[in-house]
Amino acid sequence: MSKSIADLEEMARKCRVEIVKMVHRAQAGHPGGSLSEIDLIAALYATRMRVRPEQPDWNDRDRFILSKGHASPGMYAVLAEMGFISHEDLKSYRVLGGVCQGHVDMKWCPGVDFSAGSLGMGLSFGMGCATAARLDSSERRAFVMIGDGEMQEGSVWEAAMAAAHHELGNLKVILDRNRIQNDDFCEEQMRMFDIPAKWKAFGWNVKEIDGHDMTQVMEGLDFLEAPENCNGPSILIAHTVKGAGISYMENNPSFHGAAPNDEQFHQAMVELGEVEA
């Protein structure tokens, strides 16, 4: 908790640089969702996650499950910042034999707790981790990040119902509400109506924040950890912007799963303060 808001913002900026570099180098991948989630994941790892980068399989570590596993560049960038992998490893993103597989994979990358990539699976896996922690009488928590489009998968709601039924206070979800999915805006693909009300109706503790305001992000993480919210599962609904931080990617469905060209890459590095205009 010794990191200042400015420190966290700088960590997230460096991660944004790595995200754009990874996707540009591979000329494939998912920059939009990586940029929308990154402030949240960076703050979570830097200030809350009880992990040992030098011992990634430490049994009593907190688990983090990136259920929107295609947004892997964001997670890889944070794992490199935390020391689970090297910054050199980031060059292996989508490369044959690389630790940075296209979608996060627990068999390939130290620090990855679940092999995601198929939407709607992470919350159930997190419920299993939380249930095991309870059986072990361990203090470890399971943090799960899901996407908003992902909530269209029915299995998310199986897990939501089951986790509340079992009062899993050690299960913490962060929703990256970036409003865009593969084909288009979520509102065009499948309207979601009142998302907080849905989760409340399923028996969850709910809080909404601006997922790019680092002060609010810290308040949101406080909410997830607060003892009064450990009576059952909690969800932090983070309102975000797809592609956040790169002007031409922001709110642009085209950059859900597309790489910038060389010119766009240069512009991104300028916008992130890495190079002069």
């Binding site: 896996f125 029915g154 199986e158 897990a159």
Partner: peptide, 20 residues
């Protein structure tokens, strides 16, 4: 108990298996 939810059940199992 996973209720009538087989998809969730399989992955709760996965999470528990990954936890020993």
């Amino acid at each position: 108990s996973c209720g009538i939810g087989e998809q969730n059940m399989l992955l709760v199992g996965a999470g528990m298996a990954a936890s020993g």
